[in-house]
């Protein structure tokens, strides 16, 4: 049942065409941020308006749509965005990763490998990887055009000299096809290795900052590093307390007033599926 007061998937057709053109240019120039005239959406900037606009431009009525925030389907903002598209596009929704044809995400890539029949849409707060080094758009645009990424390497190297490690643990910058340095959105660096050579199409939408960018399937994506300090994907060194998974990204949950902690999968669908298959962690009932 769709809301008849608004067009299919909320946006008007002219806006969708504009976004669709930006998506195509994004796919043709992987990692390059295409400016687009982001519209005001009925949810606040910073809450997924870029991802929502990209999803609205991509969805068809036959799609099955999944929304995750921090890996979970039932976080409030994920619930809110899912119900928005249920209402405006009438699409079927799911929490099951493998059943979804379009997945909108904030801050995570699902644990389960995605397929060629899927599209992953990221919500991006600050699309410019150089922004915290150079606040001016006019300057960062020049740096990308000249492939002048020295500042980024200097920053990462300063981390190493100060801390012994690169002190970036999420939104870890990557280089795409040897050309553009790209912000993968604030996913934990644990997820970075999944960006490259993925079978699914990856689309990134930054509404407030008016940028769309993309990674076609099977694109080369390299996390920036140094020979003597290679990139390392890291996670909490524990198994999941509920499903016992050793390889999944974990949330740390405080379970009692004494500060007792347990670790559980951040990808709720992955964890539920494992538990349903009989896997048990040490904290499971």
């Amino acid at each position: 049942m769709t809301d008849q007061d608004y067009n299919f998937a909320y946006l008007d057709e002219q806006t969708k065409r504009m976004i669709r053109r930006a998506i195509l240019k994004g796919l043709a120039i992987p990692g390059y941020q295409v400016p687009f005239a982001s519209r005001e959406m009925p949810m606040p900037y910073g809450w997924g308006t870029g991802g929502v606009q990209v999803s609205a431009a991509v969805l068809t009525p036959e799609d099955t749509f999944k929304v995750i925030d921090q890996g979970a389907d039932d976080t409030t903002n994920a619930v809110s965005i899912r119900s928005f598209f249920q209402r405006t596009a009438g699409v079927t929704t799911t929490t099951k990763t493998s059943d979804a044809s379009v997945i909108q995400t904030r801050h995570r890539i699902p644990e389960e490998a995605l397929t060629e029949d899927q599209i992953l849409v990221y919500q991006v707060p600050i699309p410019e990887p150089l922004r915290f080094l150079e606040p001016r758009e006019s300057e960062t645009r020049k740096m990308h055009s000249l492939e002048e990424y020295g500042l980024m390497h200097v920053k990462l190297y300063e981390d190493i000299s100060r801390h012994g490690h690169i002190a970036t643990s999420y939104a870890y910058p990557v280089k795409v096809e040897g050309r553009y340095v790209m912000d993968p959105s604030p996913i934990p660096k644990f997820d970075n290795p999944k960006l490259g050579d993925m079978a699914a199409i990856q689309l990134f939408g930054a509404g407030r900052e008016q940028r769309i960018y993309a990674l076609p399937p099977y694109t080369q994506v390299v996390s920036l590093d140094f020979e003597d300090h290679p990139f390392e994907a890291s996670k909490a060194d524990h198994p999941c307390g509920l499903c016992g998974a050793e390889e999944s990204y974990l949330d740390e949950v405080i379970v009692d007033d004494a500060g007792g902690r347990m670790f559980v999968c951040s990808d709720t669908d992955y964890c539920d599926a494992r538990q349903a298959a009989g896997y048990k962690g040490k904290d499971a009932a």
Binding site: K16, R20, L24, L27, V58, T60, I201, A214, P216, P217
Partner: peptide
């Protein structure tokens, strides 16, 4: 039905450009 037909058509174009 522009909204639905262009959505389908776009997916074809996007898949082609992406692959």
């Amino acid at each position: 039905n522009p909204a639905v037909q262009s959505a389908h058509a776009f997916r074809s174009v996007m898949e082609a450009m992406a692959r």
